[in-house]
């Protein structure tokens, strides 16, 4: 299994410990990671897609063309990168005129888009290509006795006809790969509610976004007793971590550690938490201690 590793912008700049976790953990599962040298922003929906569609498609195909040159499919952790790259490819494959226009532009940079490489989300690859059995087999430590809730990235669910791999209304793959690490995954009513962190909402009306997300945290707290929240999207990771601090300013104490899946996977494989899980707002030390102290 060879995949081009598309990191996006946030991960290498703000949460590089996740990058480290991916780079360490995935090869152990037999995933060979190829760097997509010279990749740029996917682009994020708030950038070129909101200003110029052709420019936006040109940037996406810039990124995809790199994978094409290397002959690999792309694996992505960030939900919105996944969505942006995948929707761009779908649009270009469907619309010949746009494809031509984009190739004209790419031509300036000496690149070409043919649309061969497929963009896959990490959950998809782990569940469907690696499989839960293999994950359970390779880990050295497990999460037995820990309770988790999971956050499915919206951008991997909708629109399902373009980017769905799981059941869009009742996803289960993230849950199952977390369970493969030994944790108990608990459902709660608002499990599928968007974290609220992406796009303009949280930026332009932060207080309203906090209120929206608080409903999710209230439900989580009332209905489950999670030791951690497991996400697999950089925005979910950053936002669901940070917002707990803002909620605590309003007197609501949640303090539920948030991990990216790659991080707990790497921890279970025995990698150094200082490398793979060192950056967070809500302290994660206790959980990390439990994991690193646990016997496989």
């Amino acid at each position: 299994m060879r995949y081009g590793l598309y990191l996006g912008c946030n991960m290498p700049a703000i949460r590089p410990d996740v990058e480290r976790a991916m780079r360490l953990a995935l090869p152990i599962l037999g995933i060979e990671l190829v760097d997509l040298e010279g990749y740029a922003c996917c682009p994020a929906f708030g950038t070129f897609p909101s200003a110029d569609e052709i420019a936006s498609l040109a940037i996406s195909s810039w990124n995809l063309s790199i994978a094409e040159e290397k002959g690999v499919d792309v694996v992505v952790q960030c939900g919105s990168c996944y969505s942006s790259l995948r929707m761009a490819r779908a649009k270009l494959l469907k619309d010949e005129e746009k494809r031509e226009r984009v190739n004209e532009l790419l031509g300036i940079a000496g690149k070409k888009f043919e649309g061969k490489p497929c963009t896959r989300h990490l959950i998809d690859v782990l569940y469907n290509e690696v499989g839960t059995e293999k994950i359970s087999q390779v880990i050295k430590k497990n999460l037995k006795g820990l309770k988790a809730v999971v956050q499915y990235p919206c951008h991997t669910r909708f629109p399902s006809e373009v980017l769905g791999f799981d059941n869009p209304g009742r996803p289960r793959m993230l849950k199952e790969i977390v369970e493969a690490l030994g944790a108990e995954v608990q459902h709660y009513s608002r499990e599928l509610q968007c974290c609220g962190g992406s796009g303009g909402f949280a930026r332009q009306a932060y207080q309203d976004a906090v209120k929206f997300t608080k409903k999710k945290y209230d439900a989580m707290k009332n209905e489950t007793q999670p030791d951690m929240i497991v996400v697999n999207c950089i925005t979910c990771l950053m936002y669901m971590d940070k917002i707990q601090k803002d909620l605590s300013k309003e007197g609501e104490e949640f303090s539920i550690p948030v991990f990216d899946y790659a991080q707990i996977l790497a921890l279970c494989m025995g990698f150094d938490p200082k490398e793979v899980a060192s950056i967070s707002v809500i302290p994660r030390d206790k959980i990390i201690e439990k994991i690193t102290g646990a016997m496989s």
Binding site: Y188, S189, R190, Q193, A219, N222, E223
Partner: peptide, 10 residues
């Protein structure tokens, strides 16, 4: 639809 813990649906 959110299923609440008592079986209600929000």
């Amino acid at each position: 639809l959110y299923q609440e813990s008592d079986g209600d649906l929000t």
